[in-house]
């Protein structure tokens, strides 16, 4: 055990070298800090201007991130939490741990943003991704009647999975249980997270997988592969808006505000599309990268405001469980 503590000492010593600069700690989800996510570029861009050390800490996914903050409570080491989504805002607000901000920006979100605690930084539409050459249903009713096979994620362990529950709920309200019963024979399986489902889809296990309208942009831009498309559903697509907020307990108030401001600036926003594969919350002056213009543009944006989403969650989950557990 001594050796482990010794090793730990070395590890913590290396991170303490930059201790003379102020440090801003941002908790976020793991894919944000990964070498292929926005993290490294964001860190470089912000540190170039702030004279500080930006410490990004990755915590699994959005839901686990909120759990971490609740676990740490008022003694949290985090100054900012980046990566909650609209379905988590109500629960996050209830903790009373987050402080309002005073930042304003010209958001290019499909809805008007009024929340003054949580700052949106990117957004996307949930959608079913399929191989471009296959013809696919254009709404949930047609999907339920078709033989099309889909892969989805479990709402209890995955953000897109929960998004799908909200999508069906927002589109169909009281008819939701019937829709899920109709869909139950289309669902090949339900996975723990997005990666399993997407991996299985690429292996050909199903015709469509629950993902985002922006997923085909990855294949097009990063792999020069135009074979993937997102299915346009005529009842509208549910939106996911990802947000960040400052913690009341921060000891770096000014620096935290500076980072939040940075988040809605071009420097941050232009990193988002091709690293997080989402739409920027404020379209940068340079516009969207080539390839994003090929994506489907839903005519109708479905969205449940934070408090409604929180209220609908339990009911939607039990309807989903009821329909699929038979």
């Amino acid at each position: 055990m001594k050796h482990l503590l010794f090793a730990a000492g070395i590890l913590s010593a290396t991170s303490a070298i930059a201790a003379d600069k102020p440090e801003l700690t941002v908790y976020t989800y793991d894919s944000f800090v990964s070498d292929w996510g926005p993290g490294p570029q964001v860190e470089q861009a912000f540190e170039a201007t702030c004279g500080c050390d930006l410490n990004l800490v990755g915590v699994e996914d959005g839901a686990a991130l909120l759990s971490r903050i609740r676990l740490e409570g008022e003694n949290s080491d985090a100054d900012i939490v980046l990566g909650l989504d609209t379905n988590l805002i109500a629960a996050a607000m209830e903790t009373g741990l987050f402080a309002p901000h005073s930042i304003s920006a010209d958001y290019t979100l499909p809805i008007e943003w009024t929340d003054t605690t949580f700052l949106p930084y990117d957004w996307g539409y949930f959608a079913f991704v399929h191989n471009a050459e296959t013809t696919v249903p254009s709404n949930f009713r047609d999907l339920a009647e078709s033989d099309t096979k889909i892969l989805i994620q479990d709402p209890r362990s995955s953000t897109p999975g929960l998004g799908l529950l909200m999508w069906v709920k927002a589109a169909y309200g009281d008819e939701t249980p019937a829709i899920w019963e109709g869909l139950s024979d289309n669902i090949v399986t339900v996975t723990k997270g997005w990666s399993e489902a997407y991996g299985l889809f690429l292996e050909g296990e199903a015709d469509m997988v629950l993902s985002y309208t922006t997923s085909p942009a990855y294949h097009l831009i990063a792999e020069e592969d135009a074979s993937k498309a997102a299915a346009l559903f005529d009842e509208g697509h549910y939106m996911q808006i990802e947000v960040a907020a400052k913690l009341k307990s921060t000891d770096q108030n000014a620096l935290a505000d500076q980072f939040l401001n940075f988040m809605v600036s071009d420097a941050f926003q232009s990193i988002i599309p091709t690293t997080n594969w989402m739409y920027p919350a404020v379209t940068p002056a340079s516009g969207l990268p080539d390839g994003f213009d090929t994506l489907i543009a839903p005519e109708k944006s479905l969205y449940l405001p934070a408090d409604e989403a929180a209220g609908a969650r339990e009911e939607a989950l039990s309807e989903w469980l009821g329909a699929l557990s038979q």
């Binding site: 590890l11 991170s15 793991d30 894919s31 800090v33 990964s34 070498d35 292929w36 996510g37 993290g39 490294p40 860190e43 410490n55 990004l56 800490v57 990755g58 997005w194 990666s195 997407y198 991996g199 997923s215 990855y218 294949h219 990063a222 594969w277």
Partner: peptide, 19 residues
């Protein structure tokens, strides 16, 4: 984990998460 230290399985999950 923080951003700098990753084990191979974690890196594998991160690659998958990044398409």
């Amino acid at each position: 984990a923080d951003a700098e230290i990753a084990t191979l399985p974690l890196q594998l999950y991160r690659l998958m998460g990044a398409y």
